[in-house]
């Protein structure tokens, strides 16, 4: 754990990269998309949570590979766009591609095992995701979406809190080295 706190000062060859059981990434991504789409019909409270974003962040910071991170974000984002209605394909795709890349890049520089750092990381990346999303909407779609609202703040807290629990569960999918 100690060396993880100082991961940023080490060379890339010393960064610990976690491996997962085969199909774990696909299964977790699928379940995240499924639950996001499925639970939405049981109430608007699910709008406070972005499960696909959590999966992108988790596997991004755990695998610490920017390429796989950005592709995972792109695929999950595009599928999330595909499951929506009214928004063009690529809106979530661009945002999650960038989040996946940033998360992978940050994963090797900060401690991602501590619940508090996980909470903070998700909180920051949630708003980063929102900024990219709103920027894309404003620039490409000419939609006046707000960058920040109280609802978004609440959603960021809820999603970050959920991330602490969810990441602990996803840790069980790690393959022991």
């Amino acid at each position: 754990m100690d060396y993880m706190l100082n991961a940023g000062s080490r060379s890339d060859s010393n960064i610990e990269v976690y491996k997962y059981y085969s199909g774990a990434v696909v299964l977790a991504s699928f379940l995240a998309l499924l639950l996001q789409a499925f639970l939405h019909k049981y109430g608007h409270w699910t709008e406070l949570v972005d499960l696909p974003l959590l999966v992108v962040i988790y596997f991004g910071v755990s695998r610490r590979n920017p390429v796989s991170g950005l592709f995972l974000g792109a695929v999950i984002g595009i599928l999330q766009d595909g499951l929506g209605h009214g928004s063009p394909i690529g809106l979530y795709g661009i945002a999650k591609t960038l989040v996946g890349y940033v998360a992978s890049s940050l994963g090797g520089r900060i401690d991602t095992e501590n619940p508090a750092s996980r909470f903070a990381l998700v909180f920051v990346l949630f708003h980063f995701h929102q900024i990219v999303l709103v920027s894309t909407e404003r620039v490409l779609l000419n939609r006046p979406a707000p960058f920040f609202t109280l609802h978004l703040l609440l959603a960021s807290f809820v999603t970050s809190a959920l991330a602490v629990v969810l990441f602990a569960l996803l840790d069980r999918l790690r393959r022991s080295s």
């Binding site: 595009i78 690529g90 661009i94 591609t97 894309t136 779609l141």
Partner: peptide
């Protein structure tokens, strides 16, 4: 990847 998606959006 981002450019491809921007083009897709466009």
């Amino acid at each position: 990847v981002v450019l491809a998606q921007v083009l897709l959006l466009a």
